[in-house]
Design a protein around this nucleic acid. Sequence first.
DNA 1: TAGCAAATGTCTAATTGGCGACAGTTCAAA
DNA 2: TTTGAACTGTCGCCAATTAGACATTTGCTA
Lengths: 237, 237
Amino acid sequence: MPIDFDLLQPSLQKSRWFSQVPLHLQHAIVGSATMKYLHLGQYLHRKGDKVDGLYCLLSGKLRASNLSLNGQELILTWLQEGNWFGEISMFDGLPRTHDAIAEHDCSLLKISNQQFEQLLAAHPTLYPFFIRLLCQRVRTSFKLIDEMASLSLKGQLCRRLLLLIDGLEFSYTEHEQHDSQVFKLAISQESLALMLHSSRQTVNKILQELSKQGILHIHYGHITVFSKTKLLSLSQI
Amino acid sequence: MPIDFDLLQPSLQKSRWFSQVPLHLQHAIVGSATMKYLHLGQYLHRKGDKVDGLYCLLSGKLRASNLSLNGQELILTWLQEGNWFGEISMFDGLPRTHDAIAEHDCSLLKISNQQFEQLLAAHPTLYPFFIRLLCQRVRTSFKLIDEMASLSLKGQLCRRLLLLIDGLEFSYTEHEQHDSQVFKLAISQESLALMLHSSRQTVNKILQELSKQGILHIHYGHITVFSKTKLLSLSQI
DNA sequence: TAGCAAATGTCTAATTGGCGACAGTTCAAA
DNA sequence: TTTGAACTGTCGCCAATTAGACATTTGCTA
């Protein structure tokens, strides 16, 4: 049961990070991976778990979150098709920083500790690429910290909607673009609130405002966004 | 004007990260550095600046912060004796994530881009160590994100005081310990507020409470902390 | 197609924290 | 020793947000 590299291409290339890795190294990475499957609701790992591998999500959706001391779930983000994650624990050997829960049935590439060590030993030129993955992580985190601190709740919400749209790789590009496209975000207001560490009621109020301004529509269980550009300008308040 | 490694030892070994680097690599790192000096109030770099080097603060104190859109300063942290920083821009070549301003006269080790490249080329075994530095950064950031979200303002304040005490390396150890030691934190309530993105008045109110509980004393321009353990238990609210 | 669970909409009261105002205190430099 | 800037203490008002309660809507499934 070898893994068919070409078959995975569409998923793999969704990652800005992975697509910048030279082709022969891409092959080496995928070559040391095995498949792993999860059912909806299953945990891939929990915060504090020992490191067991580096993953790439091929299909499905994972929620990265953890529980606050009073038992409330705090969602950090969603991992989507093409996302690589788990590299921090791989490198420093310390426990997982978050829970990872399947929100749909998922398929993943898994590179175990052993395989990872062998991979790096065989291809030390991979180091700079993994370093870049870490740098992305730090920059995204710093940006999030700034935004949590400086933006109003409304600004933060708009920012998060944009992040969800751009989805992949924890990273958000600021390219100017026209509003020709409509985006469907499958997320409940409750979940949005958990991500903003706010209340469902407040999120609802803000979404209503945005809806009245024609920026988005609210549906049962999802939101459609009409204007990325307007969200962008609002995410500076 | 070669740099005297032994003379710098006391400062260098304050870094948990650096002290775990093997001795011959420590020498290699310091060997590719030059000295740099700053006066109080001078900027080492500003957010958005092009990368110019990797630094280690030998003496003095730097403030890492940036301006929010409405012009307010948001303090991320203070860099203290022994801290290494600036590695993110070194690795990904992107602009600085924060301003760095001298709060006292400072002396630093500087490793320029060129020197850094040569250093890594000559000692590729350094990669895992720099990776670990990045991992520390990510973990500290994740922790901060969680705490900003889940803790009350009082909890956050206690948490920050602990961080300031442990100071070095962005990292905070949870070792249980007795309250035999007293810590002096040279920081104004105003600055604390900027770090918590709160107001001076609120910070004052909380500090008064803590003072009444005997956990700390408030002075002009600084705070003395008597009980780390009590701060620790309060930083879970 | 009836029923149910999940999601949304909308009130209210209570709480938190921001902010202006101003008085008092401390420290250092002239 | 005086003076002024920086820091701390405190009050009160106001806006934002939370949390509880409950009605309504939606979409799935038996």
